[in-house]
Design a protein around this nucleic acid. Sequence first.
DNA 1: TTTAGCACTCTTCGAATGAGAGTGCTAAAT
DNA 2: ATTTAGCACTCTCATTCGAAGAGTGCTAAA
Lengths: 346, 346
Amino acid sequence: MHTHELSLRQRQILKAVIHDYITSGEPVGSRSVSRRHRSSLSAATIRNVMADLEEIGYLSQPHTSAGRVPTDLGYRFYVDTLMHRPRLSKVEESRIEQGIRPSSGQAEELMQETTRILSHLSRYAAVVLAPKLTQSTWRRIDFVHLHRERILVVLVADSGLVQQKVIVLDEVIEQPELDRISRYLNTVLTGVTLQEVRNRIVARMAEERDEFNGLMRRALELSNKTLEGEEGHVYIGGAANIAHQPEFADVKKMKEIFGAFEEKSKLVKILDECLAQGGLRVIIGRESEIREMRELSLIASPYKSGDRVLGVLGIVGPKRIAYDRMVALVDFTARLLSNILTEADA
Amino acid sequence: MHTHELSLRQRQILKAVIHDYITSGEPVGSRSVSRRHRSSLSAATIRNVMADLEEIGYLSQPHTSAGRVPTDLGYRFYVDTLMHRPRLSKVEESRIEQGIRPSSGQAEELMQETTRILSHLSRYAAVVLAPKLTQSTWRRIDFVHLHRERILVVLVADSGLVQQKVIVLDEVIEQPELDRISRYLNTVLTGVTLQEVRNRIVARMAEERDEFNGLMRRALELSNKTLEGEEGHVYIGGAANIAHQPEFADVKKMKEIFGAFEEKSKLVKILDECLAQGGLRVIIGRESEIREMRELSLIASPYKSGDRVLGVLGIVGPKRIAYDRMVALVDFTARLLSNILTEADA
DNA sequence: TTTAGCACTCTTCGAATGAGAGTGCTAAAT
DNA sequence: ATTTAGCACTCTCATTCGAAGAGTGCTAAA
C-alpha cells in the first residue's frame, strides 16, 4: 500500500478517533466525535470521512454498525505524523529522578529500579535489557578462582556498575597467575571496551613479535571468554498491570501474554533490534514478529554511556496505549539513565 | 474447635470428596461419590455423612443444593492425616535431576533452574528463597574496591555457589589493604559460617589482648557489613501457570494474585517462617496471614547444606492443588538440592 | 459539499423459562 | 439402628426472546 496524502480534515478526525479510543477503549462513533471535538462538522460528514479512513486502512469496524477502531496502520500514522510529544510534568520527572538512584551500584539493582519506576508511572509492563558487556568500558577487572577451570570475572564499569560472570576455561589457572593477568589488564584498561582491549593486545603482541608471551596470551583468552556467549538479560516489571486492561479480560489472551513474558528470549530478540536501530522505537501489534505481541505495543529506547549504546528500556502495553505520554516517559527515562551512566563514566 | 474423631467411613468419604474436587474443580455431590468410589453405600447414606462433615467444618456448600467443597480445615485434615505420599515416577525424578545441574555455579542460576523445573513439573508457580549468607560456609571471600567507600564482596561458598554484595563502609579502604584483609579472612575461613568467623576473631582479639589490631578490627567490620541488612531474595517462576486455573478466571482475582507475586516482600516473610520451622510445610488458604493467599496454597520445604538450613523452595497453587503429588515433588526437589549443596561442600 | 432523516444492522441486557444437579427429609426396608 | 428409596424443593446455568441503544449507510434536501 502506498502512502496516502490525507486532507487536514481527515487527519483531524483520525486523530480524534484515536484519542477517543485510547481513553475509552470502546469503538468510537461519528456522533461522539462531532460532539466531543470541533463541533463545526455534523455526524454525517464525519461518518463519510470515517468511511474513507476505513477504505485507506486506518480504521476498522469490529462489526457493521459499531463505531470505528484504529488499525495498526492507523496507529502507525498517528505515531509517525499526527502525534506531538507532550513534556512530562515536573512532578513526574522528579519522581523518575528520585526513583532511579542506585544505592548499591550493582547493575542488577539499577535495572530493577528502572523497571519499577517505569511500570509504576506507565501502569503497564516495563522491560529493560541489561547493559551489554561488549559495549561497556571498564575501570577494573578481577578474576576469582572458584574451582578447577571455573573462574568468576568481576567487571567494574567506568560508570561504577558492577557485573559478574562465571567462565570456564580449558586449563586451570591458579589465583596468583589470575592476579597477574588482571593487574596487566587493568593497566591496559583505560576507559575502553573489552573489544578494544583485545585489539590492543593483539597489536602489541604483533609489535613485540612475541606470540608466545604467556601472560598476554592468557589475558587474551580470558577477555574472549568473558565476552563470548553473552545472551541479553532482560528485566521485567509490572507485568500484572497488563491484566488491568479491559481488552485482556479474556483469560486466554492473558495467559498467552504472560507466557510471552516468561519466554524472555523472544523479548530479548526484539529488544536487540531496537538496540541496533539506535533511537526510540514504537512497535505496534502485528509489526512485531512475535505472535504474542499481536495485541500489544512496545515503546522502547536505547540508553547509552557517552555514545556507546549499552542497552534498551521500554514499556509494553495494549495497542491503545497513550503513545504520546508513553513516548515522553520512555524518552525521558532513557535520557536520564544515559546521563547517569555517562556522568559516572566521566 | 477441638479435634473430632472421625469414623472410618467419614474419613473415606472426606478423602473421596477431596480427591474428586481436586481433579474436577467442581463441587462434588453425594451421587458421584457413591458412583466413583466404593459403591457399597448409597447416595443417601453418603449425603448424611457429608452433612456431618459439613457440621464439623470440613466441607461446605457454595449454595444450597450444590455439591460439597472442602474447607481449609478439610484440606488440613486431609494433608495431616488422610493423605499418603506417593513417590514420584522415575521419569520425573530424573527430569528434576537433569534440570538442576548448575552449569555456571552462580547461585542465581541455580535458583532459576530450580524455579524453572519446579514450575514446569507442577504446572503451578514455583518460589525459591535464595540461600542466606548467614547460614552458608565459605571457601573464599574477596573484596574489590569499587569507588570511595563502596566495596564489592565476592563470596564463594563451600558448595561452589558464588554470591556477591556491595557494601558501603564508613572509611575508605584501598585495594592493597582489602587484599590483606581477605587473605587473613581466608585463612580463618575453614568451612565455617561468617557468624562463626566473627566469633573467632573476637575470641582471638581477646586472647591476644590486642584490641587495636587494625587488620582484625577491619576484618570484623567487613564481616559485619557483609552480613547485615540481608533481606531475602526470592525467585519466582511460572506465575502464569496459575492463570490456567479455572477458579481464577475472574480477572479481579488474577490481578490480585499477580500483585502478590510482585510484592515479593510478603512472600519472603512467609518463606522465612518456613525456614525457621525446619521441615516441609503446607500452608492452606487463610492459614496464611497474607490476604492475597486466601485462595492459594503453599507447599514449601527448606533446603540445606549439611545441617545448616540455607533457604526454602516450594510451589504456590490453588487450594485444590494435588497435595500428595506436590508434597512429593517439593520434598524430592529440596532433598536433591540439599544433596547437591552438601556434597559440593564436602 | 454538507447535513438531516430514516431504515437497517448488530450488540447488549434483562427477564423468562426449562433442564439438571443436588440436597434434606420422611418413610420404608434391612 | 442403619441404610435406602422416593420426592419435593432449591439453586444454577444455558437458552431464548424481545426491547433498547448505538451506529451505520444511503438518499434527498439544503
